[in-house]
Every structure is written in structure tokens, then in C-alpha cells.
Design a protein around this nucleic acid. Structure first.
Length: 315
DNA sequence: CGTCTTTGACCCGCGC
DNA sequence: GCGCGGGTCAAAGACG
């Protein structure tokens, strides 16, 4: 089982632009957003991964007006070749869960397998006219030896699937908190296996069970209500704070249709609410351009990455 | 013994 | 309608 360690969030050269997605000139808001601009030199962010398109935006997602969404679209300057997916953020966590709960409730009896299967088939009443809704998603890519990045939350793995056109399986995790619907998907980029793509779905409704080791004292992240602790602190705003900031940033203009075959620009993407379960896989449309970044040995917490990089750069 | 992972089966939505 | 692929369930096993 993979555990956190040896993680590096790193960069890809923009396929069509020489500027990094996290170049302070092209993404002036990001560092401010994360509160990192004071602690991390810009050179580090030259090596932050640009985020792949994890999901092809459905036409409806592209056209989503977002007018009823708590998240606001296009409030920040467009990153060149931005490929962030906008989201309708329809906050439908309950529906997903209800879906599953219904399925498991009246499964009774330990009869033979056939009975069991029949029971299962009856468990899921058709919810006609009610599509499965998904919560907003955030995705980011990290350069990591391990798939699972420690992010300060506890996760339970509930599934693993082989991904089409990829030798690497995709793992599905769920926050262990009973009141929290957050899910996490982890997969490895097939064209660059050193890159791990993590997708978060939903928002934590509770603080991180593992507070980071005093980093917040340095003013990193907490003002934005991000959960403490590493990569997920980037990706997963909680409901405990002003979570709109992060998501707003990634509410980029709709997919411009030119991202086919490669990662375009962002290191983090707000994938958004995707109702289709047949979204195109990362591997179908992305090419993880290898970078010259070294892998670092750390414990996988982003807070730990930064100092280690600093040491490397300065040493 | 409780928690977590593994894994096969199932469900669902979508495209053809 | 059918097949495909993503997503999820839940039993069984592993582990501490």
C-alpha cells in the first residue's frame, strides 16, 4: 500500500506558452490566494505542475450559466490556454449518498448468491429524471513516488478501477468522517508515471484531524479556510472558511477546445460538477510532459515540500 | 477486535 | 437496446 512520501508538486512547460501557470505574472492571484508568495520564491512555482484536464467538460458544463452557483466564474484573469473546467457546483452531496444508502438498506438475508444478486438488483429503485449529481471537484497533479498524498485528512479506500488506456489503476477514497462526503480520486498519469493526479470532490465539513506542525502559525493558508495539511490544503477548501476564494480562482473560462492531447495550463483545476459518469479519462486526453524535476524525499506534506525545495535551491 | 484494503460484482449514464 | 467505462458497494481478508 502506498503511503505518502517523496512528493513533489511540480511544473510542466505550457504546451503553447512558455510561461508557467504559476508564474507570478501570468497567475498573479494564485500566490496571494494561497498566502505563499511570501514564503516561497517564484522559482519554486516554476516547477509546479500544470494541471491536466481530468475530465472533459460536458457541453452543459461549458455552457453552465453559474448564476445560481455560490462560486463565481471568471473573476480572475485568464491564464493563457487555461483549461480549467468551470463548475456548476450544484452541491448535491446528499443525492449521491442517498443513492448509495438506498442501495444497501434492504439487503437482507444471506441466501445463495443468486438471491443476493436479485436483492441487489431490487435495491436501487429508479430515480427517474434525477441524474446523479456531483460536487465540485478540484484536481491537481503532483510529482510523487507514491500515489497517496498525505493531506491531513483520513481517507478510506472504497474502490479501485482499471483505467482505460492506462496501466495504472485509479483509486477511490472517501473521507472517514461519517459526516463528510468528500471523496478523493487518485490516479497516475500513464504517460509520465511519476505524476500523480489527485481529484477531490466535495467539501470537508470538519477540520482536519491532523493539524500541521505549526505551519499555520506562519500564516500559510489558514485565512482562506483551507483545511490544514499539505496538498489537500490547496485543493480542498472546507466549509469552515471562505472557500470561495480558491474555487473562484479556478473558475476559468470554458474549455477552449484546443486542449486535446495535452495538459494545457493549470496546476490545479476546478473540475466542477460532472453529471456524466462517462467523462473522458485523464489518459485519454492528456500527455504528462516529463519534467526535469527531481523527486524529493519528504513525507508528502506540501508544507514539507516547500522547505525541502528551498533547501535544494539554496544549497 | 476494530480498522482498513482488496476485489469482484453491480449500477448508471452515455454513445452508437 | 446494447456495450462500454466510470463509479460504488460490500464481503472477505489483512493488519496492527
Amino acid at each position: 500500500m502506498e503511503k505518502s512520501g517523496g512528493v513533489k508538486i511540480e511544473g510542466l512547460a505550457d504546451s503553447q506558452s512558455s510561461s508557467s501557470a504559476f508564474d507570478s505574472s501570468s497567475s498573479p492571484g494564485f500566490m496571494d490566494l494561497l498566502g505563499l508568495q511570501d514564503v516561497v520564491p517564484s522559482l519554486i512555482f516554476d516547477s509546479i505542475l500544470q494541471v491536466p484536464w481530468l475530465e472533459a467538460p460536458s457541453p452543459s458544463a461549458i455552457k453552465a450559466p453559474h448564476d445560481s452557483s455560490p462560486e463565481v466564474l471568471n473573476q480572475l484573469p485568464t491564464t493563457p490556454n487555461s483549461s480549467s473546467v468551470s463548475s456548476d457546483s450544484n452541491e448535491a452531496g446528499a443525492s449521491v449518498n442517498d443513492d448509495h444508502r438506498q442501495r444497501s438498506t434492504d439487503k437482507s438475508g444471506e441466501g445463495d448468491q443468486e438471491e443476493e444478486r436479485n436483492a441487489k438488483k431490487q435495491l436501487k429503485p429508479k430515480k427517474t429524471g434525477q441524474k446523479r449529481q456531483r460536487q465540485p471537484r478540484f484536481a491537481f497533479m503532483t510529482k510523487s513516488e507514491v500515489d497517496f498524498l498525505e493531506d491531513g485528512y483520513r481517507w478510506r479506500k472504497y474502490g479501485q478501477k482499471a483505467v482505460k488506456n492506462s496501466p495504472f489503476p485509479r483509486s477511490y477514497y472517501r473521507c472517514t468522517s461519517s459526516t463528510c462526503n468528500v471523496k478523493k480520486r487518485v490516479e497516475r498519469c500513464f504517460s509520465d508515471p511519476s505524476n500523480v493526479v489527485t481529484t477531490y470532490e466535495g467539501q470537508h465539513t470538519h477540520p482536519s484531524p491532523m493539524m500541521p506542525r505549526g505551519r499555520n502559525a506562519a500564516g500559510v493558508l489558514p485565512d482562506y479556510g483551507f483545511s490544514a495539511g499539505g496538498a489537500a490544503a490547496f485543493a480542498m477548501p472546507t466549509q469552515l472558511g471562505t472557500n470561495a476564494l480558491f474555487s473562484d480562482y479556478f473558475q476559468q473560462p470554458p474549455y477552449n477546445g484546443s486542449m486535446n492531447g495535452c495538459f494545457q495550463s493549470l496546476s490545479f483545476s476546478h473540475v466542477g460538477s460532472i453529471s456524466s459518469s462517462k467523462s473522458t479519462s485523464l489518459e485519454d486526453k492528456s500527455s504528462c510532459t516529463p519534467t526535469n524535476a527531481d523527486s524529493l524525499s519528504d513525507n508528502g506534506l506540501l508544507q514539507d515540500i516547500v522547505p525541502s525545495i528551498l533547501r535544494k535551491q539554496q544549497g
